[in-house]
Computed example of a mutant assay.
Amino acid sequence: MKAVYSELHRSHDPQFYLVRGVVKRTTEQPERADRLLAGLKAGNHRVVAPINFGQGPRARVHSPEYLSFLAEAWEAWAALGDSGSEMIPNIHPVRNAGTYPTHIVGRLGWHTTDTSAPIGPGTWAGACAATDIATTAAQLVMDGEDATYALCRPPGHHAYRDIASGFCFMNNSAIAAAHLRLTHERVAILDVDVHHGNGTQGIFYERGDVLTVSIHADPVSYYPFVWGYAHERGAGAGLGANLNIPLPMKTGDDGYMNALETAAKTIRAFAPGALVVALGLDASEHDPLAGLAVTTAGFKRIGAAIARLGLPTVFVQEGGYLSDILGQNLTAVLAGFEEAR
């Protein structure tokens, strides 16, 4: 399986992370990619560079105002003269009869849902590289590859059409799916991150051509708290094209596989032409965010179950934070997929 990667992710190196009122170093660090690369090397995967697709794939998913904000944000922030080393919002207007602001501090609040997506001088470059990686992986599948892996950093599945949140700025998985839609009438996204893919759900919630399925820790007590419930099924043309499977905290391999079988039945019934897997490895029993308890052997089972869907598949890296077996878990997922294929 070919893997797409760029060193440009290193330009995004966030420091700020607010956890229950305590400021900590974020777990979304450049070292994550190093550990994932080690996992690719262990699996003998060929690493290829992304193609620069420009703004087109991003514009299929994100609004013009949002893309302009992200491109201009750091320069406008630095021009204030008394600003910090990262952009952290101090308002969240939730847009109740709100007017779109012109000041950079107002725009920052408008385009974020939380404080977990700090913007620094290299964030735009890193996020653009991630979208090119996801699009390149999708294009390779469109050109005939059976499956590809996109090592995206920063991740993307918490990013809405015009809102950043949860370490995410542009929705790489949604961008890959939108690109696949150029040749497929229907596409499915299977999100196996420990956190609900709320941004992906929001982007496609009223569309019937992209099925969104998310298996995640119960949002009653876990991020993102206000999205990810089983009753969220889509709306309008998208009614029935969204499936959430929240799991009790610390669910292990067998419980996870039961949920994955439910997801697989829904995907088969939808009959998509291609599949995007939003590959969070943070369901691991050793992940520092500690939501679920999937073992390395369990990740191999997940990969095999995905392979049995029989669809052209793009794996897009989402979460999975600093643990000693992060790379091993990636190796396991991809090996399980390849062996079952």
Rank of each mutant, 00 (worst) to 15 (best):
S6G: 09
W77S: 06
G84C: 01
L190P: 07
N44Y: 12
F299M: 12
N44M: 08
A59D: 12
P30C: 04
A59T: 06
A164M: 15
G303V: 09
A278D: 11
S221H: 14
K300N: 06
D253V: 01
T313H: 15
V276G: 05
V22F: 07
A59P: 08
A332I: 05
I51H: 02
T27W: 08
T313C: 14
R186W: 00
G303T: 09
A293Q: 03
K2I: 11
F53K: 03
P93Y: 07
Y5A: 01
R35E: 09
G240W: 04
H179N: 09
M1H: 09
L108K: 06
L80P: 00
I203Y: 10
V47T: 10
L36A: 10
R233A: 13
T136E: 07
G126M: 09
L334S: 09
I215M: 05
V276N: 07
T123Q: 11
K300T: 07
L275E: 04
L243P: 01
G156E: 01
A159Y: 04
D34K: 00
A269N: 08
I325A: 07
A125L: 14
S68D: 09
A71F: 08
T331L: 14
K250G: 04
I302L: 11
F225L: 12
F315H: 07
A274V: 14
L140D: 00
W227A: 13
L281P: 06
E339K: 12
C152N: 09
A307F: 02
Y321V: 13
